[in-house]
């Protein structure tokens, strides 16, 4: 079952990578469609960020004991200053450990 889902997901993804490389599709999207496509990664990835920080077991987690919020604020500052994925991981994760240790 899982194998079938992996293969179908792979086929869907390949189809989306390939579709505009075939002559049957128009080479140009409308400006609004182009904008919508450009916003897809921002919207989806940001939604996951918010959920990972604030949700726990399908509900909004108690804000007063949620150390992920503090670590995320620190990480946002690191992103703003460095724009580096490596530094964001390298400093953001220890921030969470520190928050968990200090506030436990």
């Amino acid at each position: 079952m899982i194998w079938a889902l992996i293969i179908i997901s792979g086929l869907i993804t390949f189809a989306m990578r390939f579709v505009f490389l075939t002559p049957v599709m128009p080479a140009k999207l409308s400006p609004a469609a182009t904008t919508a496509m450009r916003l897809v990664p921002i919207a989806v990835l940001w939604t996951i960020v918010v959920a990972e920080i604030f949700l726990s077991n399908g509900a909004v987690a108690d804000i007063t004991s949620n150390t992920r919020i503090l670590a995320a604020i620190g990480a946002a500052f690191i992103v703003w200053r460095t724009k580096s994925v490596i530094l964001t991981i390298g400093l953001g994760l220890p921030l969470l450990w520190a928050a968990n240790y200090l506030l436990a």
Partner: peptide
Amino acid sequence: EMALGFVIPLIFMAITLP
């Protein structure tokens, strides 16, 4: 306790915020 799952929102923040 390493909370490695938190790396995911960190990576995605680093991608989306800029």
